[in-house]
Structure formats: C-alpha cells, structure tokens
Write a protein that binds this DNA or RNA. Sequence first.
DNA 1: CTGTATCCTACACGATACTG
DNA 2: CAGTATCGTGTAGGATACAG
Lengths: 128, 128
Amino acid sequence: MRRKRPYACGVDVAIDVIDGKWKVLILWALTTGSKRFGELKRLVPGVSEKVLTQQLRELEADELVSRRTFAEVVPRVEYTLTALGESLNEALEPLGEWGSRNQARIETLRSPLSPERVNAVDSGTPGA
Amino acid sequence: MRRKRPYACGVDVAIDVIDGKWKVLILWALTTGSKRFGELKRLVPGVSEKVLTQQLRELEADELVSRRTFAEVVPRVEYTLTALGESLNEALEPLGEWGSRNQARIETLRSPLSPERVNAVDSGTPGA
DNA sequence: CTGTATCCTACACGATACTG
DNA sequence: CAGTATCGTGTAGGATACAG
C-alpha cells in the first residue's frame, strides 16, 4: 500500500506506517534495544538485504527508528526505536494480544480441511 | 500478503487478517450496525464491486463478518460484525488513537517540502 | 441489487551480484 | 559489515462487462 487515499481514519495512518512485510517484526526486534544491521538480518529471517534496508529507511523517514553510523574500520550501524516508535509498539500490543488469542482459530479456519469443527471462541484454547 | 510465513507473533496474525486495502474501513463501517452491500459500497468510496466482494468474503471466511441473504424479489444481503470482529475492532482502537494523534506528524514528514526536522540526530557521537 | 468473469497494471518483494 | 544496483516475479487491486 503506502500512501493511498487521504487517510480515512487513524487506523489507516498507523497501518500505512507499519505497512511492509517485515516492519512489525523489525519494530518488535528493536524493543529489546538497539540492533545492528546484521543482527536485524538474523532476527528477521527471510528478509533480503535490499528489503531490510528499504524498510528501515522508511521506518527512519517516519521517525519510528533512528539510525546511528559509526565511522570505524569495520562499518557499523545501529538502529534504535525512537519515542514515537515505542509509542507505536505500545499501541500495537492489544492487536498482538488479539492475534495471540485467536491465532489458532484463524489458522484452523484457513486450513484446507474441516473448518467446521471450530468451537473455541476467543478462549485461547487451541484445537481440542 | 495474506498467508506469508508461519506467523512470527500475534500482531502478524492480526495484520494478516486485516490485510487488504479496504478491510479496516469495512470493519469500521460495520461498527454502527449491519450494512447492505450497496451501503458498504457507498461507505467505502473508491472500492470496486469485485474487490469489495472479495474482501467481504475473506472477512467472512475469517469470521469477522457474517453475511445474511434475503430471498426477496430484490436481492438483499446484509453484513454484520461478529463478536470476533467486534473484539478485533476493539483491539484496533489504540492503533487508531495513535494514528489520529500522529497523523499530522506523519503527513508532514512525508510531504515533499519542509520537514521541520531539518537537523536532527544524525551521526552517532561515540562515547561522549 | 448483488454479485462473477476477464483482463490488465502497478508495485512490493525476492535473488543475485557488486561496492565502500 | 552494510549496503546499492538490477532484474525478475507474484499477486493484490482496478476497469469493465455480464448475470441471477
């Protein structure tokens, strides 16, 4: 997505800002403190360098993440959550809880077989 | 996206479920009660019938929305938020507040001109 | 009114190679 | 180590036409 219509509501803004296949994971990884590029690459398995760079740049442009470079013989860069980024992560928590509570249900619903035997409702109880 | 890797965290699940250009708006529109297809089309300006149908089907498959058809001479269908859908909307609220609070800031940052943060934290200062 | 069926395009993302 | 450059791809979404 990124930059669609004039935002229709606040959620739109937030979604737009975290839109990108890996951004939430990146934000998540940074909650435990600053990380180097290579660390993020490890913490976000599957992402290519190009895309990781790209999404970090966007997060930086939106001031959710700050970037510090160290002019050392061995290039080093550290990414850190800004206050804004931290506040976003906090706003994301309820959504995370919702997802955790309903993950099993969603996965069952989407699994190719037997979507009908779903009974657990929002109780966090995985398939019986 | 829809169905990427095994979910890395709860937020991933939730994001996946609301992923789609119009889903949040649809969910939003339904908070005020059941809506007919045509109403939704009006309430979500810009969406095509194909895509609206598509996203409604996905929301339905994820049990966030329920669909009632009325076999009348004039076809009529109503979409309603399920309990799960309502709980998702609640989990979305903090994100919406975050977005509302920071919308102006984000828009300024992204506007082609005059980002007020001409000088901000740039290169790191090694051990002061 | 409420959809389907096609066709088409844009763009995010992936893979790989190369550089300071 | 931390990127950039390039090329290729999948697929969500848009436009339009048709149908029950």
